[in-house]
Design a protein around this nucleic acid. Structure first.
Lengths: 286, 286
DNA sequence: GTTCCGCATGAATCGATAG
DNA sequence: ACTATCGATTCATGCGGAA
């Protein structure tokens, strides 16, 4: 199967209009955060932020498949000693647009940005807001199971004898099922807190988030051959990961510098030859 | 110095009116969360929640000292497949009342409630919203510094088997060096994420949160002889901790059962005899 | 005296069933 | 149709009794 990675230089508000309705399985993005300094490129002030984002949210709602998911990585900055409220307002407004606010994951950063202030500690977490179009959506939970916590090592070692007995007793009649239950018992489902380190600066350009972050959500909400969209692609981490995981992807980036960085990093068309029948499915492009 | 712990049976909306303006240094509380079922304790629906809380917020703003802090422990529940938005709305409304939303701490629960659903993982975190009356407030950061060794310990504990082996392999020759490195290591400031386990069942009385939670904020925002207020005292964990830390405290609880539990747990007036001159400072009661 | 194992139990959520 | 109740699911933790 052929995996397509499409890079677009331009403004998301405009470029998204060129995508078809209901054509994307997962949107994962980390938009530019609001910033007081107007000098920075794309500098959107906290006051403008919601109105700036909403037209894009509208388009994202259109291009997402009914059973798709939108993950928005965001964190409000401090402004005049307070946390800004634009993220809260954004959630409320997006619900009015028709989004369901399904969940809020937390990225608990193991190594947060250093610093010291008299009235505040280092900020060590970010929001990962999950939005959906419907209550039913695709979620492949088994793909992200993690090794069971440490406690089990000491206690679960010789579970066979007693625990199987207990299991049988509970089930009562049926006794065929239990063995398979305990196979691979080392894996448990994760929670809505992701405890990851921020990416070390071993690459020339440091991404806003570590590769594990998009990887986890791509695993969880898509399968091979699905399409991932990042409307604020930045240096292209999301797309790079999506490609390696054999998902089609589309990235939009307005800053030429970042766009070129992406182009150098990513092969636009990546052929996986071990599945030769090149079934070219419905493309998300009009 | 005499430490006063005052327990009040009644409705916070009314009882708070009996407290003086600007008389409390820290408010730490965990109000009943909104609930679909009307039969249970508190029984406030998500729709009613903001309007129910706001009059209490008004009184809390009045009784808090100008340089005091209000910590609100809360988490929205799921309702019809979505996270409810009442907490977001509450923050926005409290700002209109005059509160500053200074910070949002995260309580990352090590042991979250179990369960499995097709569209959601276990909820493993709660909000600790920090509100203030002014940009300047008392914060004793040095009181909550943690040894670097703490995370090192946790890390070694978690990754026991394989990682210790790997660690040895890395160190290669010298195996005496590493341990002494962490002894007496300098204290560092924490972040805005608290990683604690929930207090589990088998203790005499189980609280909604572990003792470490109020303890940490009492250390951070008050000094000995200051006054702590919990308008939803529940089983009295906050007050108990405050008393042991030699802070005055006031607890209000509407459910007689919980109130009696507090009374049994806490000595109303606790004399610390090793400071005999009983300086009776300004009382917060009218 | 340690270490180990069994058991109970949580600020939960969904879907089916019953009134 | 709409609401209240109930069972099923699941994992980290502390306590108590056993090895």
């Amino acid at each position: 199967m052929q995996i397509n990675t499409r890079l677009i230089l331009g403004d998301s508000a405009k470029e998204l209009k060129k995508l078809n309705d209901n054509s994307v399985d997962l949107i994962f993005t980390s938009p530019p955060y609001a910033d007081q300094r107007k000098s920075t490129y794309g500098g959107i002030t906290p006051e403008e932020y919601v109105n700036w984002f909403l037209p894009i949210g509208e388009e994202l709602l259109r291009v997402l498949k009914p059973d798709g998911t939108f993950i928005l990585n965001i964190k409000e900055k401090v402004s005049e000693g307070e946390r800004s409220t634009y993220v809260l307002e954004l959630i409320l407004e997006m619900r009015k647009q028709g989004w369901l606010w399904t969940e809020e994951f937390i990225w608990h950063k193991k190594n947060s940005y250093p610093g010291k202030w008299s009235n505040r500690f280092r900020d060590s977490w970010e929001r990962l807001l999950q939005f959906n179009k419907n209550r039913k959506f695709n979620m492949y939970q088994d793909e992200v199971r993690v090794p069971v916590g440490d406690w089990a090592k000491g206690r679960l070692r010789n579970l066979s004898a007693t625990d199987q007995r207990r299991d049988n007793a509970k089930n009562g009649s049926g006794f065929g099922k239990n063995v398979s239950n305990w196979v691979g018992r080392e894996l448990v489902y994760p929670t809505n807190v992701l405890h990851l380190a921020t990416e070390c600066s071993n690459k020339n350009h440091s991404a806003a988030f570590p590769r594990e972050l998009p990887e986890w959500f791509i695993k969880l909400f898509t399968k091979e051959g699905d399409t991932v969209l990042d409307p604020f692609a930045g240096s292209g981490t999301t797309l790079e990961v999506a490609q390696q995981m054999r998902r089609h992807s589309i990235g939009i980036e307005i800053v030429p510098e970042y766009f070129q960085m992406m182009q150098q990093q990513i092969e636009p068309v990546n052929l996986y030859l071990f599945e030769p029948e090149s079934v070219y499915e419905s493309t998300p492009f009009k």
